[in-house]
Amino acid sequence: MDIRQYLDSTYLKTAQQAGLSDAENVEVVKAAVAEAIEENFKLIMIRPDMVAIAKQMINDAKSHVLVGTVIDFPEGKSPLEEKLAEAEKAIAEGADDLDFVIDYTAFKAGNIAEVKQQVVACTRLGRKHGKIVKWIIETAALDDHEIVQLSALIKNCVITHLCEDDYNHVFVKSSTGFYKTENGKPNGATVAAIKLMLENSFPLPVKASGGVRSYEEAVEMIQLGVKRIGTSSAKAIAAGEAASGGY
């Protein structure tokens, strides 16, 4: 097993969140892209405004590393038109994977039709352009029943409105890593949440994102059945080490 081909190496901090200037943050992104190229990770996951930079670096290096970005990040509350516009810009600038934050707030409020409309329209857009689409459900904001319901909702939208050939290219993803939890509760992927997602999203694949910081944790997720792992600790995981913190 080449664990690197499961790893979406991730850097999603804004300059303000990182305590850096804009120019300094760009350099951090460039370093993350260079590391992904050197380590031959599956993908580098960065903010939309960094997609063009990452794509140029990867093309110049003649690398096969994919470029992923997040859409409507981190809360997923934007109207459908804004989600689509942000995705279209990312596609134009060379993104390979589009990781949409689902409007989990609307879902929790019972606005199911609205959520379904967003899932169908955004997934269709991504697949029309041959892109991988992932739906971040933010498991830390949901109880177990809601994780089951939302995973099944995404699955049913895809099965009903897209082709069978699309199934392997539409993921259910656990977390943004930016959700603020109380009492030190995990804000990323947990084994319990991932099991619920796997059981209720099949045949769609699952991405475990956030909280996977060691080789052993990554292997455990892969053995459960996940197809991608989003982590800021990709290099440590690939080296069989444990990282002390981060996404």
Rank of each mutant, 00 (worst) to 15 (best):
Y11Q: 04
T14S: 15
T14R: 11
A15N: 11
Q17A: 09
Q17Y: 02
G19W: 04
G19P: 05
A23K: 04
E24S: 11
V26D: 05
A31D: 06
A31R: 11
A34L: 10
E35C: 07
N40K: 14
N40R: 14
I44L: 13
I44E: 06
R47V: 00
I58A: 12
D60C: 05
A61L: 06
A61R: 07
V65C: 13
V70K: 13
D72A: 15
L80D: 07
K89C: 01
E93Y: 08
A95N: 05
F107V: 00
G110N: 08
Q117G: 06
V119T: 03
T123N: 09
K131H: 00
V133D: 01
K134H: 04
I136E: 03
E138T: 02
A140N: 03
A141K: 11
L142D: 02
L142P: 08
D143V: 10
H145N: 15
H145L: 13
E146C: 08
I147H: 01
I147W: 05
L150T: 01
A152M: 08
N156C: 08
I159H: 03
I159V: 12
C163L: 14
E164N: 12
D165M: 13
D166P: 07
Y167Q: 09
H169D: 08
V170I: 10
S175A: 15
T176E: 04
T176P: 09
T176G: 11
K180R: 14
K180C: 06
T181A: 11
E182T: 07
A189K: 13
A189H: 14
V191C: 08
E199H: 11
N200T: 04
N200W: 05
L204C: 06
A208F: 11
A208T: 10
G210A: 14
S214C: 12
Y215R: 12
E216K: 15
E217H: 10
E217M: 09
M221E: 03
M221L: 13
Q223Y: 01
G225M: 03
R228N: 06
S233F: 04
A234G: 15
K235I: 03
I237P: 03
I237W: 07
G245A: 14
